[in-house]
Amino acid sequence: MKLLDIVVKDAIDPQLAATSRDEAITMLVDRLIEAKAVDPGHRDEFISAIIKRERRGSTGFGHGVAVPHVKHPEIEKLVAAVGVSHDGIDFNSLDGNPVHSIFLIISPEQKPEEHLEAMEAVFSNLSQDTFRSFLLQATTVDHVTSLLEEADSSTLGN
């Protein structure tokens, strides 16, 4: 699975203004709604489920990266929003460091394998120092999109 198969271009925020975890989650869900990628009728449900999931265990897995997510029965196609915070956000991450790169994922509950493939696509890139630092240098949606394109065609290397 490629990053651009899952990331909704209109839901990329290279200068995420959020200052808290819950605000970041809310803003990225709203981005997906504005991009018409998910049903606005489920907005509050998505937000509260994602926050609840974070409370059970942070998806801030270290290296300044977080992947808040929810699986929902009404979702047919997995979608992801991307937020980049230059100041960093406290995500209660495992290594205690602030989070700069957020991939928020909403996936169909009945297709757990799609969720795992999306996570694989996200982490095979986010685990690379190069990808993370390029993402932090991106200041426009176009910059982020071309970075994702390069990552998908594996021209970034390790």
Binding site: F61, G62, H63, P112, L116, M119, E120, F123, S124
Partner: peptide, 10 residues
């Protein structure tokens, strides 16, 4: 955890 997630083990 990141590397384990890269296994995409269904």
């Amino acid at each position: 955890i990141m590397q384990l997630m890269m296994l995409a083990a269904v």
